[in-house]
Design a protein around this nucleic acid. Structure first.
Length: 494
RNA sequence: GGGGCCAUCGUCUAGGGGUUAGGACACCGCCCUUUCACGGCGGCAGCACGGGUUCAAAUCCCGUUGGCCCUACCA
């Protein structure tokens, strides 16, 4: 099971998002796998920001990623320091690509040029576009024809830089193929002839994505590149670059994509795609981690897939212990909000009030902060059946202010003349401890020939304006005697 | 067009020659109940299609269909 880990190499994974303005949950899932794998093997998890697209990369957007990762509990061992572009943690920084331009990419490009492994190409984008269009019109496959490969152009004229890709007979090829032994997808073969000499640096001198990735991953000593499988087709290009640079290539693991409910790539029209939105919907970060991890991954316990509810609800520690790239699915998975909701509910039920409180607080009014710990504990425990923090906060709304309006049908149904005497008597109760309340209720309903339900529902309507609230004794305790008497009094003394 | 990947209930999946094709979510029903919930029990529902190979195919092979990725001086 651990054959994927070569014993000689320190485990280093990395998550490398580009700052587009949000943190996509597909990205979070990839990051989660990287994180789990690193944790499992006592390795290092790096966050690297791919901000070479100047039009989209802003400090604000980078911050959104950093904060999203932090909220999700995916803390990085090496990477940027939140909110301070000039700082980073780790020996191989900086961890923002734009800051590596002169120090890392430029020298690497020059070296390749000097060694004759890359070359200057004077074909302009316009010329290439024209040739591509012509080829397409003729129904042919367009590939760059390598016309500048042996021209030995100097730098006296504008030129892009291309990598000399293998032609087919290089000894490191396997029967003319670039072979990728992917830890998830298995052995993948790409005919060398299907790849052309790709551009590693643009005419303006800026390096391209596939180039930066390889330079960074080697420089940061990444041992396992775990990323979305939309990068599978990029990998043979990168493998060729590793050979040109004479670096040992890392292990690759390409995780399947997350699709929307209809099987199309998960996008805005499916609803929430940004991690921030899930935060706002009232999900616990632990639930998001679990739901995302269980998409495409089936943990095996002693070789057997998990198959009970108990096993389904893994803790972080269990996930880390059980994590194995070999148990990840090859095919894409559709994101199911129902399952996230269920996991969220279960995890809320199982959490202590202290674990919930920091995540819950943002959904509550200022008044929450002035409550005692005992009261907070009580409030959380009495609403812990909720599906989300938003729903839980909704359950507590009656606490913060008297009802703005009353459900008239409920008033007519429950606040009847026969229960009003009981309501009056209830106002006399002094002791709001659970057992005392129960005893008080029992004597009142007995005396008035009512059922508990009759009194409880009448109280709910009087106190909350509607016949729904937390368990009735909790409702009373949370409100406190003074407030209960005030709200009930309006109905019985008026 | 070329290169590559993928295909078991509605969804996530287990199973990889002989299984009544197993589990979870969702859904439906019943029970419990101080409301709403929670919880308990039960039910519905699936191997994309067509050919092979084999005594036997969800499982192996080929093809078809469908979905996705790459094919940029985007990342």
């Amino acid at each position: 099971m651990t054959s994927e880990v070569s014993m000689s190499r320190r485990i280093v994974t990395r998550f490398a998002p580009s700052p587009t303005g949000m943190l996509h949950i597909g990205g979070v899932r990839t990051a989660l796998f990287c994180w789990l794998f690193a944790k499992k093997h006592g390795g290092t998890f790096i966050l690297r920001v791919e901000d070479t697209d100047l039009t989209r990369s802003t400090d604000d957007n980078i911050r959104i990623i950093e904060e999203g990762m932090e909220w999700c509990g995916l803390l990085w061992d090496e990477g940027p320091v939140v909110g301070d572009p000039s700082k980073w943690i780790g020996p191989n920084g900086p961890y923002r690509q734009m800051q590596r331009m002169e120090s890392h990419y430029k020298p690497a490009i020059q070296k390749l040029l000097d060694e004759g492994k890359a070359y200057r190409c004077r074909c302009t984008k316009e010329e290439l576009d024209g040739r591509r269009a012509m080829a397409e019109k003729a129904g042919e496959i367009f590939q760059y024809d390598r016309r500048c490969r042996e021209a030995n152009h100097d730098d006296s004229q504008p030129a892009s830089i291309r990598l000399k890709m293998p032609l087919g007979s290089e000894p490191w090829l396997e029967q003319g193929d670039i072979v990728l032994r992917d830890l998830i997808k298995g052995e993948l073969r790409f005919p060398a002839t299907s790849l052309d000499d790709w551009i590693i640096a643009r005419t303006d001198g800026t390096p391209t994505y596939n180039f930066c990735v390889v330079v960074d991953d080697t420089d940061m000593e990444v041992s396992h590149v775990i990323r979305g499988d939309d990068h599978v087709a990029n990998t043979p290009k990168q493998i060729a670059l590793y050979h040109a640079m004479e670096y040992e290539a890392p292990a690759f693991a390409h995780v399947p994509m997350i699709l929307g409910k209809d099987g199309a790539k998960l996008s805005k029209r499916h609803g929430a795609t940004s991690i921030t939105e899930y935060q706002q919907m009232g999900f616990l970060p632990s639930a998001v981690r679990l739901a995302l991890a269980r998409l495409s991954w089936t943990p095996k316990i002693d070789g057997r897939a998990i198959d009970t509810v108990e096993e389904e609800l893994l803790t972080d520690e269990e996930m880390i212990q059980l994590f194995d790239l070999g148990d990840i699915q090859k095919s894409p998975a559709r994101f199911d909000l129902d399952k996230l909701n269920w996991m969220n509910q279960k995890l809320i039920q199982r959490a202590t009030w202290q674990e919930i409180e920091p995540h819950f607080r943002p959904f509550l009014p200022e008044a929450w902060n002035s409550k005692s710990d005992a009261w907070k504990a009580h409030a959380i425990q009495s609403t812990q059946k909720g599906k989300s923090l938003v729903e839980m906060a909704g359950f507590l709304e009656f606490v913060w202010a008297p009802p703005a309006e009353f459900d008239q049908a409920a008033v007519a149904k429950f606040i009847t003349e026969t229960v009003k005497p009981a309501l009056k008597e209830l106002c006399a109760l002094q002791d709001y401890e659970h057992d005392a309340l129960h005893a008080g209720f029992n004597s009142i309903i007995e005396k008035n020939g009512l059922k508990l339900k009759d009194l409880a529902q009448a109280l709910r309507v009087a106190l909350c304006g509607k016949p729904v609230s937390p368990p009735i004794f909790d409702t009373l305790m949370l409100l406190g005697r003074d407030e209960v008497v005030a709200r009930v009094g309006k109905w019985v003394w008026a």
